[in-house]
Amino acid sequence: MEVRTIKVFTTVDNINLHTQVVDMSMTYGQQFGPTYLDGADVTKIKPHNSHEGKTFYVLPNDDTLRVEAFEYYHTTDPSFLGRYMSALNHTKKWKYPQVNGLTSIKWADNNCYLATALLTLQQIELKFNPPALQDAYYRARAGEAANFCALILAYCNKTVGELGDVRETMSYLFQHANLDSCKRVLNVVCKTCGQQQTTLKGVEAVMYMGTLSYEQFKKGVQIPCTCGKQATKYLVQQESPFVMMSAPPAQYELKHGTFTCASEYTGNYQCGHYKHITSKETLYCIDGALLTKSSEYKGPITDVFYKENSYTTTIK
């Protein structure tokens, strides 16, 4: 009895394709271990004539594949690729409408935090270190965002349907971005203890939790000093293409032309909904596939993004 075979390709990165001759009487799992086709788990399936010449994702289970996976995804987590594939199996079914010149995501599976993050990423200057993220990001900007969303979920250790947080998501993504040249110098002034300067680099240099107003941050924000008295913390120097200011959701007025974009969060910790506000020729609110415009805006804002380049204080 002759062994019926077909020729397929296996890959971990969709760049390096490895030619395989597979036995049609055995499952993919018996031949390769966990195997995925377009995100779908085909591990328990036997090869079919229609699979001839198709590319299958496999887990990096030998040295060659491990090197290829690390170079593309910059992670050695053995569960990463499987999590990416199972997320992709959902995100490829989502709709990605162009809204006001940006790629958004039609609401499904509690994905409003991903839509808000995706919209924000198209408006701030950011370059990702893992080629996987950078490639998928370019495709997302062009309207094909399924891979990018699935990668975000995998890097953030999230599953489809789980509630997510924009600030946490951005923080994970910033860790995989090139923020080497970003720098922030802060000064804390206390009447009792004097003053202390701190220099922050990388992710810490672009994120701040405690106030939404970048102007206020430049002037000074009140913080408790270690001595128990009130101290003032203010920005001395900022070198970065953008800054992200966050605070627990509270009524906040966004003035046209003073910011790049913002995240609105309605609801409580267990259950809520994100919308995205962007400042173009007027203010726009993007909620999944829905767009509304207004000249002014007041609502429960939790993150505001500002364009920056270089700032030095005039406070002496």
Rank of each mutant, 00 (worst) to 15 (best):
I124H: 04
L290S: 15
E168S: 15
E2M: 09
K92L: 11
Q175A: 08
V160I: 10
T313N: 14
T266E: 09
L81D: 04
A40I: 09
C193V: 00
H256A: 12
A177T: 11
K92F: 05
E52A: 12
K255E: 00
Y311A: 11
Y155P: 06
E2P: 08
V243M: 05
F128N: 04
V3K: 13
T169E: 04
C190Y: 06
Y306A: 06
A262W: 01
E144P: 03
Q30N: 15
D63K: 07
W107Y: 04
E162H: 06
D303K: 02
T260V: 15
L151I: 00
C190W: 05
L235T: 02
K158V: 03
T19W: 09
P131Y: 04
V42R: 04
H256D: 11
M170C: 04
K183R: 13
A40F: 10
V304C: 00
V188M: 10
M245Y: 10
R83A: 09
T120R: 03
V185M: 08
L119S: 03
Y234S: 07
K316W: 15
D165H: 07
V203Q: 07
K293T: 13
P249G: 00
V185A: 01
L291P: 04
L126G: 06
V58Y: 04
S279C: 13
P34L: 11
T313R: 14
K298C: 15
S104K: 02
H18N: 10
T27H: 13
L126W: 04
K275C: 06
T198Y: 14
T91C: 12
M1I: 07
I15S: 13
Y208V: 12
L173G: 06
S279H: 06
R184H: 00
Y72H: 14
T120W: 11
V221N: 05
D303N: 10
S310D: 13
N309A: 15
R184P: 02
C149L: 08
Q251K: 10
T43G: 13
F32R: 10
K298P: 06
S310L: 15
T199M: 08
T55M: 07
L118Y: 12
G53M: 12
K44Q: 14
D165E: 11
A115F: 02
Q270G: 07
S171C: 15
I286K: 00
S263Q: 07
D303I: 00
F305E: 01
C261K: 04
P300C: 14
Y137S: 04
R139S: 14
E281A: 02
I286Y: 06
A289Q: 06
P249Y: 07
T116R: 01
T278Y: 13
H273R: 04
V22A: 14
N309H: 10
Y172R: 11
Y155N: 03
D13K: 01
E296P: 11
H273P: 03
T10P: 11
L65N: 00
Y274Q: 02
L291R: 07
A146C: 04
E253I: 12
I152W: 01
T27I: 09
L151F: 06
T232W: 09
L59S: 10
E239H: 11
L37E: 10
N100I: 06
G288L: 03
Y306M: 03
L126H: 05
C182M: 01
P300N: 10
T302N: 02
F80K: 01
L290M: 13
T27M: 13
E308Q: 05
K106C: 14
Q175P: 10
Y73P: 04
K218Y: 04
G257M: 05
Y208H: 11
F174M: 07
M26A: 13
T282A: 13
V243P: 02
G288E: 00
I124F: 02
Y72S: 11
T211H: 05
P47R: 04
E52W: 12
D13I: 03
T35M: 03
E168D: 10
Y214D: 00
K307L: 12
G257K: 01
V3M: 06
A247D: 01
A289G: 09
A231C: 09
K191E: 15
R139D: 12
G288S: 01
I223G: 14
E144V: 07
C149I: 12
L119F: 01
K158I: 10
T75S: 12
D109C: 01
N111C: 09
V188H: 10
Q197N: 05
A289L: 03
N49P: 12
Y265R: 11
W107R: 05
T258L: 05
A250M: 15
K183Q: 12
H276S: 07
F128Y: 06
I277S: 00
G210N: 01
I286T: 01
G220L: 03
Y306C: 02
P78I: 09
I105M: 06
N89S: 09
Q134Y: 01
R141I: 09
Q123W: 00
H273D: 06
I301L: 01
S104P: 05
G202Y: 03
G101R: 02
V3F: 13
N16C: 09
H48L: 13
N14D: 11
T278P: 02
L283W: 05
V185H: 03
Y155I: 03
N147V: 08
C285H: 10
H256Q: 11
V42M: 13
Y96W: 01
Q237L: 11
Q134W: 05
L133T: 02
A231R: 04
A132V: 02
Q30A: 11
G39N: 04
S181C: 11
I301T: 07
P97S: 09
G299I: 06
I105D: 01
L151R: 03
V188E: 04
L119H: 13
C285E: 05
R167D: 03
N268Y: 03
G228I: 04
D63H: 14
K158N: 00
V206G: 02
Y57M: 13
E2Q: 12
T232F: 05
R184T: 04
H90W: 11
F56P: 09
G220H: 02
G53W: 11
T116A: 13
I124V: 07
E215V: 02
M207Q: 07
E52C: 12
C261Y: 01
N110D: 07
W107E: 04
T314N: 15
P131E: 10
E52K: 13
N89Y: 15
A146Y: 04
N129E: 07
E296W: 09
L133E: 06
Q123T: 03
D41R: 06
T312G: 09
Q30T: 12
K106S: 13
Q230R: 11
G194F: 01
Q216Y: 03
C225A: 02
T312L: 13
C261Q: 02
T35Q: 02
